[in-house]
């Protein structure tokens, strides 16, 4: 055997082993989402911590309980990982998606995902379909449309339709100094949702929303916005980081339930038209 005959396969084997080390698959967790304890929560979807967090693959079901329903399945599963530091909890959701849908418009919908937790941890959980009256659920919602704006897309019609020509906006008249109180006040008048503080209307600093619900159709903005997150599209799918405070009554080492939802924009999914999971047990690790 010549040296060359030995070196080449050995190099290939060594390189493959290295690559395997760099892309270490996290351990699987089939029956529940296990939030591992870490002193510091991950700040991105690429954080190395995720290599240690068990991966739960959750099957997604059609939301076919209340009208309007989703009648045709789209995304079939979501991969969930979780990390807690005892005060906050981070989720990493990833799912396959052939298209990036992050542009709003008539007949256009954005990709999105959400994590749902019972607002208080008790022996039994509220209905998985967004809770029930008197037994609220807390929802952290991420939208690809929000993410695109946070990433720097101008919050303007020209960012969506680059060739658009607008003659005039009354609140951008030369007589109004840009950014002045009078100008801002007038601009609000032409965007009623924004002037009412509707969280759908922006301005937007984070791509997530903190929401509460007590049954289908009851979603509302939480009193405080405490969650953060970020989403990234690569290799035919989304990976989204959601970080939020632990819900009331649960701490490190405890157990609760979580549910997840995915909206596929190219499938015109929004609101109740979504793929969702049932409640999935969520166990929280603690400091050793």
């Amino acid at each position: 055997m010549k040296v060359r005959d030995f070196v080449l396969p050995a190099a290939v084997f060594f390189a493959a082993t290295l690559a395997g080390c760099a892309k270490k698959e996290p351990p699987a967790s089939d029956s529940e989402v296990k939030a591992v304890f870490e002193k510091t929560l991950p700040s991105t979807v690429e954080d190395k911590i995720w290599q240690r967090a068990p991966l739960h693959t959750a099957k997604l079901l059609l939301q076919d309980m209340v009208e309007p329903r989703l009648m045709q399945a789209s995304t079939s599963f979501v991969r969930v990982q979780s990390v807690t530091d005892g005060r906050n909890i981070a989720f990493r959701l990833s799912w396959n998606d052939a298209t990036v849908d992050d542009v709003p418009g008539p007949g256009r919908f954005g990709d999105a995902c959400a994590v749902q937790l019972p607002a208080s941890t008790t022996a039994d959980v509220p209905a998985p379909q967004m809770g029930e009256e008197g037994r609220p659920v807390e929802i952290t919602y991420w939208s690809a449309i929000f993410q695109a704006v946070v990433n720097g897309r101008k919050d303007d019609i020209s960012a969506i339709y680059p060739r658009v020509k607008v003659d005039h906006y009354p609140f951008e008249a030369p007589s109004l100094k840009p950014g002045s109180a009078a100008q801002q006040e007038m601009a609000k008048r032409y965007a009623p949702a924004r002037s009412l503080g509707n969280p759908m209307a922006g301005p937007r600093k984070v791509p997530v929303q903190d929401l509460l619900a007590e049954g289908p159709g009851t979603i509302r903005q939480a009193e405080k916005s405490l969650s953060s997150g970020s989403g990234k599209y690569s290799q035919g799918g989304w990976s989204v980081l959601l970080v939020r405070p632990l819900p009331g009554g649960i701490q490190a080492g405890g157990r609760t339930q979580a549910a997840f939802a995915i909206w596929e924009g190219s499938h015109q999914e929004a609101g109740s038209r979504k793929m969702r999971t049932v409640w999935i047990p969520l166990s929280l690790g603690s400091a050793k």
Partner: peptide, 28 residues
């Protein structure tokens, strides 16, 4: 209700006269 709408566009689909409109800038 501009404070409550979340821009699902169900009304745009449902109105036969197409007199509800989605505003991409306000998301409602």
């Amino acid at each position: 209700d501009q404070g409550r709408c979340r821009g699902y566009q169900e009304c745009v689909k449902a109105c036969p006269y197409k007199k509800t409109f989605y505003n991409a800038m306000t998301g409602t």
